[in-house]
Design a protein around this nucleic acid. Structure first.
Lengths: 236, 236
DNA sequence: GCAAAAGTGTTGAGCTTACACCCATGA
DNA sequence: TCATGGGTGTAAGCTCAACACTTTTGC
């Protein structure tokens, strides 16, 4: 195997190595305003290059798992969660992404809903950060996160993806908060309601959310399978 | 290196190998109707697996070229052309894509305009086929082409991509023919005109196309840089 | 002049946006 | 009863599809 001390001729002869990384998004209340904001987990690098810097969770692709399975495993290992939504983002293969070795990273992005499992998985070397306030990360991971954010916002505006941040039942106000958090602008509650009512993939339940301070809102359920890629196509 | 006779333990130990393939689209007049239709070049496999079947142009990623450069080289080698448009499509990494060896293919798709170079490159082992009438191809290449077609149609409907099938100057009727060929439905010439006039990336030239049978149409020019991906973002 | 394509005008349907307004509930 | 978020109504503005119509050329 090649290490960081591999010399130049070794590097030139080595085929590019292949890694899988995952950008994992979840919404959690911001410390200041309490409104939901985007967070993602990062892992601290424990070896060179970029030792002690934060990086996207990832690792090599093993011989007996598909790309998606590898990303799914990443996600499980760093958050303790099964993916609520998982899609390929892009393959990054620039020549100088890693100073020691040529690495091609196939990156996935995922949405999860924050539960106890997420908190349990936090540790010295795994921590969550606000997506809009990231420090400098290892490798080209800042650009990767930027691109993932761009894709998320795009999909949020067109596709039916917001549901995957939420549990099975949700109110329209909660759903609107998700949109507002990701798109970072307020939406008219009245119009938002109508637009979603015209979408067939959202279903009224008979239930109402009790325990609030005011009129109990109706609970809805998502029925539909988005996800894109060669396997499952729907929206741009 | 591993060959098709690699035994099971060798296969299990080998890391997945990495290849680049390219789906190249061009429009050429159909033999029957004369209207433009989608074609793509394929190469005949000269070794196992899938010997003698047609496959997407591609090859291994060399250590000193980026993913995009590798795809660009594919394109040059099989068509003699520089890419007019080139974008990453998807990374395919299923476990059983190749019977002999685990291969991860990073696939690009490209648009070119048919010129002499294209015809010159045709040979015993390189030939063009109609995209809507493909036989069974090697590996999972039929699915890859299907997905590329889906992406092309999507981008055509939203993004500004049609221009790359055409030369520098074109009439609105030619541009409409491109849309009609790819989307496979007729478009209202009057409305088509208006929609494009409102797009800022298309520019009127003072020139007119002479030599037609009827009123000479105005020539237009495309001014803009589409393309997507982490490097260059614009439309979904 | 006539055929045919280039190019313009007009209308109605449907969707988005803004915002006024009513409803139901806890305190 | 009042404050607050849940939920409905409605009118202006925009885009888009359909199609009638005028213009310009070659023959």
């Amino acid at each position: 195997m090649f290490t960081t001390s591999a010399n130049v001729s070794e590097r030139r002869l080595a085929p590019p190595s292949l890694a899988i990384s995952t950008v994992i998004f979840a919404l959690r209340p911001s410390e200041s305003s309490g409104r939901p904001t985007l967070w993602l987990p990062l892992v601290r690098r424990i070896r060179e290059p970029y030792k002690d810097m934060w990086a996207l969770p990832g690792g090599p692709l093993t011989h007996d798992e598909s790309l998606q399975d590898a990303a799914s495993r990443n996600l499980l290992e760093t958050t303790g969660l099964a993916p609520e939504y998982l899609e390929q983002l892009y393959a990054f293969g620039g020549l100088h992404r890693s100073p020691s070795q040529r690495v091609v990273s196939i990156v996935y992005w995922a949405l999860v809903q924050p539960t106890e499992a997420v908190l349990a998985a936090e540790s010295e070397n795994v921590s969550w950060f606000r997506a809009d306030k990231l420090e400098k990360l290892a490798f080209d991971h800042n650009e990767i996160v930027d691109y993932a954010l761009w894709r998320l916002r795009n999909k949020m505006a067109y596709g039916s993806i917001a549901y995957h941040f939420l549990g099975e039942y949700f109110t329209l106000a909660q759903l609107r908060e998700v949109y507002e958090a990701v798109l970072d602008r307020p939406l008219d509650p009245a119009n938002f309601r109508r637009q979603l009512k015209s979408a067939p993939e959202i279903e009224e339940t008979g239930e109402f959310l009790q325990g609030g301070k005011h009129r109990p809102p109706r609970l809805y359920r998502f029925t539909g399978t988005p996800g894109l890629g060669p396997d499952n196509r729907s929206t741009p």
